[in-house]
């Protein structure tokens, strides 16, 4: 498969150059891992005139932790997330999510920032970022600021990012004290698949429970009504049905070739129920281990 529409390619070594090029070229696009972008170029989904490869920009491939906050740089790959000691210590559920992304050779290239910039509804990162109340670090070359993740996604393949802007990284506030998390992904089999539904749960002693679903609405959904319900109720045989009813209000899955909306709806309920149980277990025990499929 060949790319039939021409473009120019540059690989600047500093940010100043990146923003200059972005400002000069309306149809420029940034290239990091390229695992989505190059597929889209081949299939003529996009036809940029210029690709700005940011892989030579220093400092963007770091995972840093300071002041209860994790910073994931724009060039951090999913494979980096899987092997990061900081991630393993502070928020292993991010590793759990990263392990479900595509396959190893894709994860070696694909970045989390690229994932949320593509913003396809079946993306893996969305629900995790929602439960951590992540903030997206944006720059236009002059200023750098944060936007909360709940504002970031505008719809399928749509974000608030403007043409002359770039995402520098993602900040993940880590809950104070012990916390646990669970990520579950529904695929058609155990092998690589695009998510038909995802469910992320973060449970912290101090901040309570946070729940988000992906791939079951145009953008990732934070299930606030369920979080609220669980503030006052324990998960048990009686309440589980009420929680499942609330799921129906939170999500709006569609029918497509990968799954029916009915199956997605049913599975989100199952995934949430199982996630809540595991999150609770993980808060007190090291087991069940992170990074193993629970479906």
């Amino acid at each position: 498969m060949t790319i039939i529409n021409d473009f120019d390619y540059v690989r600047p070594t500093n940010l100043k150059e990146v923003f200059k090029l972005l400002n000069q070229n309306k149809s420029a696009m940034l290239l990091a891992g390229g695992t989505d972008l190059i597929g889209n170029l081949k299939e003529e989904v996009i036809k940029p005139k210029l690709l700005i490869d940011i892989k030579n920009i220093k400092g963007l491939n770091k995972i840093k932790y300071a002041k209860n906050e994790l910073l994931i740089g724009a060039l951090v790959t999913f494979d980096d997330l899987i092997h990061s000691q900081v991630i393993l210590n502070k928020c292993p559920v991010v590793m759990e999510m990263a392990k479900t992304v595509a396959s190893k050779a894709i994860r070696n290239r694909a970045t989390m920032v690229g994932n949320i910039c593509s913003a396809v509804p079946c993306m893996d990162s969305g629900a995790i970022l929602m439960v951590y109340d992540a903030r997206i670090v944006i720059s236009d070359g002059k200023n750098e600021w944060d936007e909360p993740v709940k504002k970031w996604f505008k719809g399928p393949r749509k974000t608030i990012l403007k043409k002359n802007q770039m995402v520098m990284g993602i900040k993940l506030p880590i809950p104070k004290g012990d916390h646990s998390g669970v990520y579950m992904k529904l695929g058609r089999y155990k092998g690589e698949d695009l998510a038909q539904a995802t469910c992320a749960v973060v449970l912290s002693k101090k901040e309570g429970i946070k729940i988000s679903f992906g791939s079951v609405a145009p953008t990732p959904v934070r299930a606030l009504s369920i979080e609220k319900f669980l503030k006052n109720n324990e998960l048990n045989e009686q309440t589980v049905n009420e929680i499942k009813k609330l799921v129906e209000k939170e999500i709006s899955p569609i029918d497509d070739i990968r799954a029916s909306k009915e199956y997605r709806m049913h599975m989100v309920k199952i995934m949430l129920e199982r996630s809540l149980v595991i999150a609770k277990e993980r808060l007190v025990n090291p087991a069940p281990a992170y990074g193993i499929s629970h479906l």
């Binding site: 092998g191 698949d193 070739i257």
Partner: peptide
């Protein structure tokens, strides 16, 4: 044909 690729025509992997 809607699934003329391995993304949506799922042939098994080592995990399956």
């Amino acid at each position: 044909l809607l699934n003329s690729n391995f993304t949506d025509y799922k042939i098994p992997t080592t995990l399956d």
